[in-house]
Design a protein around this nucleic acid. Sequence first.
DNA 1: TGCCCGATTAACT
DNA 2: GTTAATCGGGCAA
Length: 197
Amino acid sequence: MPKRLTRAFFNRSVHEVAPDLIGATMLFKGVGGRIVEVEAYHHTDPAAHSFRGPTRRNAVMFGPPGYTYVYRSYGIHWCLNFVCEPEGSASAVLIRAIEPTAGLAAMRRRRGMSQRRSQHRNQDRLLCAGPGRLCEALGITDAQNGLALDAPPFELLARTSVAEVAVGPRIGITKAADKPWRYGLQGSRFLSKPFSP
DNA sequence: TGCCCGATTAACT
DNA sequence: GTTAATCGGGCAA
């Protein structure tokens, strides 16, 4: 039986938590799957929202670990983070992609995809391939900002086998773009973008 | 106050 | 390859 991720799991360096999340299962209201791609954002990192201090938007980043931080991206999409490190560190892991395993019909519906097998077969790969798509598929918005990860409606389960974790530079940023703080499941077809060899 | 930019995505050429 | 959609934050004035 998979072990539930506790608050202690998140109360560590963001650079330890991020790779350990690869292969873990994430469910929101029973819908979700295996985490295959994340990125680490440390408060000393110019690309982190917490870099310039607390604001109303990033307030939960300055709170205790093991909580969600949801923000609006480009005025359109929602992005989900897990707050890590001891309280006040204001560091978090961005969840960038999951392999959908539970609640496929609900995810396809929210993402506006056909339920017919002939069409969705090739589309399931894109259901949760990217932080914005993932939140749309799971129905996560700012209404879920600041929620505990070790209690319903969330359920997080540790991976049950060893995962081959790929590392590379983060996507879509301009500040500290050279830092290799993107982690993913090597070879997964559910990544937002493959890792270079 | 106003202007520019961004941890994105889909729909274009 | 480019662009539009759209809003919070940072910073100049």
